[in-house]
Structure formats: C-alpha cells, structure tokens
Amino acid sequence: MARTALQDVLLTLVVSALLIWIMPMLIGTYTLTVLVIYGMLGLSLGLIWGFGGILCFGQAAFFGLGAYTYAIAAINIGESTLPMLLAVLVPAIFAALLGAMMFYGRLTDVYLGVITLVVTLILFKFVNSTAGPQYVIGKARLGGFNGIPGFQTLNVPGDPGAYIWGDPYYYVCAVALVIVFLLVTWLLRSSFGRIALGIRENEVRMGLMGYDVAARKTVMFAIGAAIAGLAGALFANWGEIVTPSLFSLGQSAEIIIWCIVGGLGTRIGPIIGAAGLAYLKFLLGQQSLIDNTLITGLILVLFVLFLPKGLAPAIAALFRAVFGRTRRKPDARRMRRARHG
C-alpha cells in the first residue's frame, strides 16, 4: 500500500471538495447530479468486479430495484427517510439471496454472468407487464411501461414539506458519493477487503487457507447491490419518475463499459468512466448526426485495444512517468539481478 489510510482520506476529501466546488461552474447541476449518481453506480460494480472478481451482468437490476423500492415506499409512507433506507436494504437482501444461490452452488464466471443477465431480463419483463390496475403495492400502482411518477421526493428527514431539489440536491448526491467512496476505501483496507482481493486472485487457495469463499463473495455481492440501490434511489429522486428502462440490458452493459473504460481494480476509475461516458452520451444526445451507442461502442473497442487497463491506471502511469516517481521499478530490477548473480 503506497499511501497510509489518513493520507488516502485527506486526499479524497480535498479532491472531492474541489470537484464539488468547481464542477457546477462547468456543467449545470441538473446534469451533474445524474453524473454523480452514475458515478456511484459505476463504483458499485467497480467494487465487486474489480476487487471482488465478481462479474455481474445485472448491476442495473439492483439499480432499478433501489429506484422502484424508493418510489413504492415513498408513495406509501409519504416521507423519504425510511424509503431511502429500504432502497439500500431491499437490493442488498435480494442480492444476498441471489448471490448465496450462485456462490454456494459453485457456479463459475460464465454462468454467473448468464444468471445475473437473465435476472435483469426477468425483472425488466415483469415490471414492464404490470400496467394493469391489479398490480398494486399498498397505495402504489406499479404502472408497467408507464413507470411510477408522482412520488414523494427527498425531503429533510422528519419534515415531509421541506423538499431537497435543484442545487442542494446536487450537493446531497455529491456528498453521498464521497461518503460511499470513503466507506469503500475503508472496506478495501480492512481484512475483509484484503481477503476479498485474495479471493479475486485465487479462490482455491483462499479456500485451502480456510476462508469460506462462498459466504464472503455473497457479502461482497450484497454490498455492491446496496450501493447500486442507493444510486437507484437517488436517481429516482432526480428523475421524479421510475420506469422499467432502469432494468434494461443496455443499462447493465453501460455499467460494464464504464468500468472497463475507467479502469478496473481502481476505486476512482469506474466513477470517472461512468461520469465521463454519461456526459459524452448527454452531449451526443444533443445532435442527430451519429447514433451515440455507436460512439460508446467505438470508445469501448478503442480502450480494449489501446488502453486495456483503463483510464485511471493509464493516467496514474503517465503521472509517474512525468514526475519521475520511478523509484520502484529500478529497485525491483536491481534486486532481481542481485539474487541471480
């Protein structure tokens, strides 16, 4: 570990404070809010895939589940605090059950991908088909392809009349992302995180050391889903409507692309990838010359070919090259020579 925990936290706080302050001058807060939310969604997959070795093709399922949970709970409760908590818990519990089934069933990566993909599809199809009046949870109609509009949006806890929207909502989302980022940092520095990294590297070895790999992967999967659920709830508040497209395969695929482009195995990479690509999509959406999915696809191909490790590691390497922090490499080489000669 290159930096101590304290340095890491301070660096995070300083950089994020600067970004939260500067970014609204460049991009409107309404757009910025959704970029922050996507950043959190990217981080959720970046955590379980990049550090836990779990490639989930259905991260959008947890995102959508969080958004729907929030919308349904908010309509029934009429205050946003408990719905926010539920929006984190429901996807986490759902993921824990699904994960336990997959990991205790010793499924390999390919089947894991297929199952998470299919679960997303099932949710998408199901929610899409709930337009009829018989699909009601409490006071909330599921609304099928029309989605659920008109739910109570985020308010100051305890005061349903005091809505948080516009600029303040941007700050709420940005701070939430910073808190989640710090929690992820803490998790990765803890024994649990280091063991998770070991499991990513070699499940058999970790099992032979006596670690219950299935249990740990299930927990990791649930944590990722909780973060995605929180992002979903924030997204629901931002859009003030939830629709089945949240569960779409396109959304799931996009999250994976964010992670690859941003840099897998880094904390910041998936956030940068998510915000950057989402902003690009937003810009491309303003013109009609080229279809924006083509551009996203092209970017993915270019990254896989030329920057397979992603943006964040590439920038870090460039930074090191420019500022001459190359102490490590020559050191290692000298050591090897010394040992062999």
């Binding site: 024994s191 280091r194 063991i195 990294l197 070991g198 590297e201 070699n202 058999v204 070895r205 970790m206 032979l208 050391m209 006596g210 670690y211």
Partner: peptide, 26 residues
C-alpha cells in the same frame, strides 16, 4: 495446511500479503 500439485498462490499480490492472508485466518 494444504498445498496442491499445481501452485496455488495469489499472483497479483505481494509475498507479504500472501503470507499475511494465510496468517490472518487464525
């Protein structure tokens, strides 16, 4: 303690981290 026929180690992690993870279990 078990060592399998093919080397089963954690390739991307350092020697220290490998051994630490084994010690951390107990």
């Amino acid at each position: 303690g078990i060592k399998t026929q093919t080397p089963n180690v954690l390739d991307a992690l350092s020697v220290r981290e490998n051994i630490w993870l084994a010690a951390r279990r107990f």
